[in-house]
Amino acid sequence: MIRRSFLLSATALAFVAGVSPAEARDQWTKAQANKWHATQPWQVGANYTPATAINQLEMFQAETWDPKRIDLELGWAEAMGMNVMRVNLHHLLWETDAAGLKRRMDEFMTIAARHKIKTLWIFFDSCWDPNPVAGPQHPPIPGVHNSGSLQSPGADRLKDASQYGKLEAYVKDVVTTFAKDDRIVGWDVWNEPNNGGGGNYKPTPDKNKYVALLLPRLFDAARAANPVQPLTSGVWIGEHWDDLNKVDAVEKIQIRESDVLSFHDYSWAETFEKRARQMLSYGRPVWCTEYMARGNGSTFDNTLPIGKKLNIAMYNWGFVDGKMQTRLPWDSWKKPYTYEEPTIWFHDILYFDGKPYRQAEVDLIRRLATSPRGMVPAAGK
C-alpha cells in the first residue's frame, strides 16, 4: 500500500501551493479512464458522516473526532458488502488545522481500509448553510433534515476572488499529501456546485457566475499534484446531460473536466436509468454519487440493480441515523417533524445501534456486492 506522509512543514506547504505546471497531469483520456475503472471492483457504498457528527466540521475537528464510532459503523458497512464511502471535507478544517486534518484523514482511511473500504473525498459543497464557521457546531434543529450541513467555501469566500489562491492551496496540499494513496478511490472536487443551497437559507446572488470562475481552477489545483486517482464533480439537475448545448456553464465544466463522470439522481427508476445512460454516452466510466430517497421514489430495490447492471458506482445518501437526521424528508425545513416520525424514512439504512431499517435492503446490497460485475442475481441467490 502506497501512502504519503500527512505532515508538511511550512516550507513544504509553500512548495505545494506553487506546484510547477510541468508536474501536473492532463485530464485522463477516455481510454485511460476506462482502463483504470476496469481494475476496480464494482463500487457500492454510502455518503458517510458518523451518527455522532452533525457535519464535516464536527466529524474532523479534534474535539469531536470519534474514531471508535467510525470503526464500529464501518464494520457494519463491511458486513453488508460496502467497499467505498464518500466523505465531505471543508476548507475551514485545513485553514484552522491542516496537519490535524490530514492526520485524521489518514486515520479515517486506516480504519476504512481495515474494513476493505476505499474513500472518495469531497473538497467543496454548495448545499445548505452558506455561512460556515469553524469551532463548536450547533445541535440538531429538532425535526429538521440535515440542519447543520455547511457550504464550502460559503457565500463570502465564493464572492471574494482574493481568497481563491488559498482555496487552491488547500486542494493542492491535500491531494499532494495523498496523491499516490491506494486507499483513495477518487477526488470529488465540488458537490453540486450550481445548487442554490436549499433549506431556508438566503441564496447567494450570482452564485453560478462565481462557481464557473473558481471550479476550473480547483480542477487545475488537484491535477497539479499529479494524483493517480481520478477527479470528478457530479451533475444533479436537468434533463439533457448528453447534450452540452443544453446544460449550464457549470455543468459544462463538470463534464469536460472530470476524469470519471458522476451524477446524482433521487428519482424513480425510469428517470434514473435515462440519466445514467445519458452520462454513459460520453464513453467514460460513470459514478452515481448520490441516490436513494424513499419518499421521492428512489429506493435500493428499484435503483441499485440498474447501477449494478450498467456497472455504475453507487453511493446512496446516508448510512446510520444520527445527528444529521436525514431519515427526515426535505420538506421538514418547512414543517419540522417535531411530534411525529415520517411515514417512511427518507434516507439512511441503519438505526443508531446498527439494526437495519429494512433487512431486505441490507440483504440486497450484500447480494449485489458479492455477485460478478454486471450480474443482478435473483432474490435468495
Rank of each mutant, 00 (worst) to 15 (best):
V44H: 01
A161L: 11
M292E: 13
E257Q: 14
P139Q: 06
A99G: 13
T11L: 12
N194Y: 08
A224Y: 01
V235T: 12
K35Q: 15
A112F: 02
V175R: 00
T326D: 14
R275W: 06
Q254I: 09
G81L: 08
D259H: 07
R157T: 13
D125W: 04
G322P: 05
W236Y: 14
M82K: 05
E273M: 08
L150G: 01
Y291T: 12
A224C: 08
I365H: 02
T370L: 15
A378P: 11
I255F: 07
D220T: 13
L261I: 10
P342F: 01
P136M: 13
L328A: 06
A360L: 07
L101G: 02
I54T: 09
L215K: 05
R366S: 14
P193V: 08
M375E: 15
P216K: 09
M105E: 04
A98W: 09
L72G: 03
Q137H: 06
Q43N: 09
A169I: 01
H91D: 10
L8M: 12
S20E: 13
I365P: 02
P205E: 14
L261N: 07
E340V: 09
L350E: 03
L368H: 09
E361T: 12
S298Q: 04
D125R: 03
S371A: 15
L13E: 09
G283E: 11
L92D: 03
E361Q: 14
Q40S: 10
W333Y: 09
C127G: 08
S233D: 06
I122Q: 09
N245Y: 04
A360S: 15
D173P: 00
T11F: 10
T303D: 12
P227W: 00
G154D: 08
D188I: 02
W268E: 15
G196L: 13
V211P: 03
A134M: 12
T29M: 10
G197R: 03
L72I: 13
T299V: 10
Y210A: 03
S147H: 09
N316H: 13
D331Q: 13
W287K: 02
E340L: 02
Y170N: 04
F60G: 01
I2K: 04
E341C: 00
D173C: 01
Y291M: 12
A269W: 10
P356R: 10
I70H: 03
T119W: 00
P216F: 10
T303Q: 10
W345Q: 06
T39K: 13
V174F: 01
P67T: 06
L368G: 07
K116E: 14
K30R: 15
I237Y: 14
A98F: 07
Q359T: 14
N146V: 12
S258C: 12
H264I: 08
W36T: 02
N131I: 05
V250W: 00
F108E: 01
D97G: 05
Y282I: 08
I117S: 05
Y164M: 06
A369W: 04
T119K: 00
K116V: 00
R327V: 09
S371C: 06
G374C: 11
Y357F: 13
N194V: 08
Q151G: 06
P142N: 11
A369D: 08
P193R: 08
E290K: 01
M375P: 00
F263Y: 14
K116G: 07
T64Q: 09
Q32I: 01
G307V: 03
L350I: 05
A46S: 14
W236H: 11
G143Y: 05
G322A: 07
F300R: 06
L215P: 02
A62D: 15
F123Q: 02
D71N: 14
Y315P: 00
